[in-house]
């Protein structure tokens, strides 16, 4: 059996059992931390579809988390609280935003694409800060949250935990399927050699745009869940530093690997916690660690964790 599947089984098994284990340790704080890592992982997996499989280095991906979160928050503020309706709104808004910004950004590739996604991300960030009616710079605390068939089972506690876990699983499974599908294969072909893919008969930009929209919509869903978890939304979700964090997660975890984004997300959240508990200025260590990792330990932790399982680019 594939080693990465074993890793995944252990990971999801642990996450599934966590609500039963945590009361034994007696830590509600830990459960929040795990939800945080899972939400990070969902957004990171979607970014891996772009960067790992598609070769499109976007530095504005967190903006879609922000757009999804704000779409949800604004809908909630206006009395929409059915989770399915919220999901629909989030998907529509993030998908549309991605359609517009993607059509422009994908006229270019490489470093231009990187800078343009960065710029569009920043534009979205500033747009969110100027939403005076919804908190502006300071963000917005939400007094009503999503319900499912009128029940508030998703408002905190295990209901929310399992919703996030279920979404993580669906994202993990779905993106893996996509990467192996006909569509994913064209996406990887375009990453490898766009000219050749074009001369195989594939309109590369269209495929990239679809991937860009899928990734944005998944990121948007992580934003929806984030609102439900934090009961608060702020433009800080959409800063480009957040986008940078997402890149760190997927590179640390290993690009285009089955579990890389999840491992990377948990690794980062744990490192932040552990370093942060020793020294308040943990970023003084974290920053140079990143630099050293790039200079000396290419390939990410997935190579350290599972030297054989991670093949760099899965094919």
């Amino acid at each position: 059996m594939d080693r990465s599947l074993v890793t995944a089984a252990v990971l999801f098994g642990l996450l599934l059992a966590m609500p039963f284990l945590l009361p034994l340790i007696g830590s509600a704080y830990l459960s929040g931390l795990i939800i945080k890592a899972m939400l990070l992982a969902i957004a990171a997996i979607s970014l891996d579809l772009l960067i790992g499989h598609g070769g499109m280095i976007s530095l504005g991906h967190a903006a879609f988390v922000g757009v999804g979160a704000y779409a949800t928050a604004i809908a909630l503020e206006n009395g929409v609280d059915d989770i399915f309706l919220l999901l629909l709104i989030t998907l529509a808004v993030t998908g549309l935003t991605a359609l517009v910004s993607g059509s422009l950004a994908l006229r270019t590739s490489g470093l231009y694409f990187l800078m343009i996604t960065l710029a569009f991300g920043q534009m979205i960030y500033f747009t969110l800060t100027s939403l005076a009616a919804y908190g502006g710079d300071d963000g917005l605390t939400l007094w009503s949250l999503a319900t499912v068939f009128g029940s508030n089972v998703l408002q905190g506690g295990n209901g929310l935990y399992y919703l996030v876990l279920g979404t993580l699983f669906a994202t993990w499974w779905g993106v893996y399927r996509i990467s192996r599908s006909r569509f994913g294969r064209v996406l990887r072909a375009a990453r490898d050699n766009p000219e050749r893919a074009e001369v195989m008969g594939y309109p590369v930009v269209r495929f990239r745009l679809i991937a860009y929209m899928i990734a944005a919509m998944i990121a948007g869903v992580s934003g929806l869940l984030l609102v439900q978890h934090a009961e608060f939304v702020s433009p800080a979700l959409a800063t480009w530093q957040r986008s940078g964090d997402l890149i760190v997660v997927i590179v640390l975890g290993g690009l285009a690997t089955r579990n890389g984004a999840i491992l990377g997300a948990f690794f980062i959240v744990i490192v932040e916690e552990v370093l942060g508990s020793f020294i308040h200025e943990w970023r003084l260590i974290y920053g140079p660690l990143l630099v050293l990792m790039v200079l000396f330990a290419k390939g990410g932790i997935s190579h350290l964790l599972m030297p054989k399982g991670a093949k760099g680019y899965a094919s």
């Binding site: 599908s181 006909r182 569509f183 594939y202 094919s315």
Partner: peptide
């Protein structure tokens, strides 16, 4: 060959 054999907008089945 895939380019000539139906749509490539298929997202789930393993192409390999």
């Amino acid at each position: 060959a895939q380019a000539k054999a139906g749509s490539s907008l298929r997202f789930f089945r393993d192409a390999s």
